[in-house]
Design a protein around this nucleic acid. Structure first.
Lengths: 217, 217
DNA sequence: GAGAACTCTTGACAGGCGTCAAGATATCGG
DNA sequence: CCGATATCTTGACGCCTGTCAAGAGTTCTC
């Protein structure tokens, strides 16, 4: 929590993997570290209640440093959203690639789905918060819509592979399929953070009910 | 916009319908008036950026009066959400009751859907904002989930009547059907406020594609 | 019409916010 | 090892917020 440690964390001090890692200078490393602290804080407290001082407290820096690496709060937030964007739509890729039967695919997908609902609840609610803010703040709009597009493609990959494994065809538009999954997940997340212990199970049941609606033949 | 009008608006002054209306005392009338100003302001500016002073400026009162009728900001917000709840889920009731053919039903439903997407965009984005806040603020959770339940029932009525008119059966869980509509509408709303002129049309097309997936026989 | 009760305005308060400037500290090239 | 540059801390600023108290204005009651 409070970092009484030396300013530079030892993990990045040695240049042992300097040939492996891109030589993103320290500047970019700090920006990323701040973004991670910001994402953590935003997931805990929500968009509206998170201040720059709070973000800095969840990092190893003091509050002033934010304005050394970012021009203002808006730039930090945008950087966070874009950072999130780079890693949000790969959650089921390994299942898509390695599952060898429809039954295995379904089991692993449902497990992963309800697992992330619980374990990554803070990250998910932050995403929904950001997307809602985008309805009012135009600086967030294009990034949010891009993320929607990435997630739609993710669902499309999942669905395509599942159809392949069960020997059927996808019978829905990508937008419709994504909307259904997104709606179900969002509702389940609200139930989950409300303390509803059955949220994960109910989500799995709903998805099981949804899947056949999206396939034919 | 700016109310230079006398303190009591003439519309509620005469007691002509005092026998018809519940004798909600002036206190409740003021609370409702403030709630309506609050909903207007919240829809314009969003949850995070709306202050009590701004709400008061969009009403005929000064900022101090809020604390005469509400203990604090939280109580006002809760009152607003509950007030919204009483009228949010009746949008398609007349169509459900008066449409006499599947074609008429479909036409009118789609028209109403894309119409409200544009005309009531501020109200809709406020709802999504509130529901996202509920992911962080537990005082909003039960009310938000109640509204979800009301909207789910609304979709269920629409779908049931449509199935009846086309002589088919609904082949989906209420939760799944609502999730799909909600996801589509939310995406369309973001497109709409982003200035996407085709958002309404695309929503209609997506719903047209969705409907057959939810019916059988 | 006077007094009481209700309603509303005004102005102030403490605290938190984003932002920035000045200076301390660390890091690096020569 | 020293000066220059990069990085970070500290403390302050102006502004806005929710809340509240004091009192002005209004409405009601008898």
């Amino acid at each position: 929590m409070d970092a009484t440690a030396p300013v530079t964390e030892p993990a990045e001090d040695p240049g042992d993997d300097s040939a492996l890692r891109r030589p993103v200078d320290k500047h970019d490393a700090r920006r990323t570290a701040l973004a991670e602290s910001a994402l953590k804080t935003l997931g805990e407290r929500g968009f509206a209640k998170t201040s720059l001082r709070e973000i800095a407290q969840n990092s190893e820096f003091s509050h002033g440093v934010v304005h050394y690496y970012f021009r203002n709060k808006s730039e930090l937030i945008t950087y966070c959203v874009r950072y999130y964007k780079t890693r949000c739509a790969t959650r089921y890729d390994d299942i898509v690639e390695t599952a060898t039967s429809a039954a295995e695919f379904r089991t692993r997908f449902l497990e992963r789905l309800s697992g992330t609902l619980i374990q990554d609840a803070q990250m998910h609610r932050l995403w929904y918060d950001v997307r809602s803010q985008a309805l009012f703040d135009d600086t967030l709009r294009t990034d949010s819509r891009d993320i929607d597009t990435l997630l739609e493609a993710m669902i499309w990959r999942v669905l395509g592979r599942f159809a392949e494994l069960v020997g059927q065809q996808v019978n829905a538009e990508p937008s419709v399929a994504y909307a259904a999954f997104d709606g179900l997940f969002q509702r389940a997340l609200l139930a989950q953070v409300s303390g509803d212990a059955d949220a994960g199970e109910r989500l799995e049941r709903d998805v099981v009910a949804l899947l056949p609606l999206l396939l034919v033949e």
